[in-house]
């Protein structure tokens, strides 16, 4: 099978995010960059699918030069080759533009199944996988926690509010990975060594033949609203403190 995994390099989830004083973006100094958590599940599922059905895994990423580290991480986990879309025009690109760039790169190669993370933990937009599936005119299974691939079709489990759906789709299709899908493997030392020699194609917007037209533009960023200082309920007796808490929730906050 021809398997594709899309990955994005993002700030680590433990990173403190500070907005630049002019609101134009975040301060990047001191940030540890890692593979987006949900993309790790996608890469792992891509590798598991290859182990079961044969074929190879191509990892595709959009980002500046440092995004190559994340591509190499996926290669070290076991992917065969990479495509790095590196173009300053794509900085701050919206989901449609991002998906268009991915679609242009993926259209040039054969694919049976495409994995994406269900969202990237930086922009939290969660749109790219679906738009990519639409641009390639293939079905999508989003936010999937269990997947079976066989006989030209996939069956996935998708949790929704108060239920889970069992969804079946023919191949080719696109799957977005949710936590629970698998336990991503760590890159082994030999894997890391081998990854250095695996081929990665570098492409820009001109090579992909797309035009950049950003339709959802982040005009400014702000820190989250400050929460007013809270009240510590003092005392020695847990029962008294608990009763006071319940009283405050009823009489002051008026929420229970």
């Amino acid at each position: 099978m021809n398997i594709i995994a899309c990955v994005k390099q993002v700030p680590d989830s433990e990173a403190l995010i500070k907005v630049k004083p002019d609101g134009s973006g975040i301060e990047e100094a001191g940030i540890k960059w890692v593979m987006n958590t949900y993309d790790e599940f996608g890469v792992e599922e891509a590798l598991k699918t290859r182990e079961k059905h044969g074929g190879d895994v191509t990892v595709v990423s959009i980002g500046p030069a440092r995004a190559m580290e994340t591509i190499r991480t996926a290669l070290a986990m076991g992917a065969e080759k990479g495509i790095h879309i590196d173009d300053p025009q794509l900085e701050g690109a919206d989901a449609y533009t991002t998906a268009s760039a991915l679609a242009a790169a993926i259209k040039e190669i054969p694919y049976d199944i495409i994995f994406c993370g269900q969202r990237a933990i930086d922009n939290d937009s969660g749109q790219v996988g679906s738009i990519l599936a639409e641009l390639l005119d293939i079905p999508q299974l989003t936010i999937i926690t269990k997947l079976d691939v066989e006989d030209g079709k996939v069956t996935g489990i998708k949790p929704i509010e108060g239920a889970q759906l069992v969804i079946e789709s023919p191949l080719p299709c696109l799957v977005t990975a949710q936590k629970g899908l698998n336990e991503p493997r760590y890159a082994s030392l030999p894997g890391i060594m081998k990854a250095k020699k695996k081929p990665v194609d570098i492409k820009d917007v001109a090579a992909l033949g797309i035009t950049v037209d950003i339709k959802a533009k982040v005009a400014g960023m702000t820190p989250p609203p400050e929460r007013p200082p809270g009240k510590i309920i003092e005392g020695d007796d847990p029962a008294v403190k608990a009763a006071e808490l319940v009283r405050l929730l009823r009489e002051e906050a008026k929420i229970i």
Binding site: D124, E134, P159
Partner: peptide, 23 residues
């Protein structure tokens, strides 16, 4: 921006070739 709405709205943004702010 429910589970269903996130899936549907993103696919629609693709079909309608337009911009969307999520959540």
């Amino acid at each position: 921006a429910s589970v269903q709405g996130k899936d549907l709205s993103s696919r629609l943004a693709g079909k309608l070739k337009t911009g969307m702010a999520t959540d």
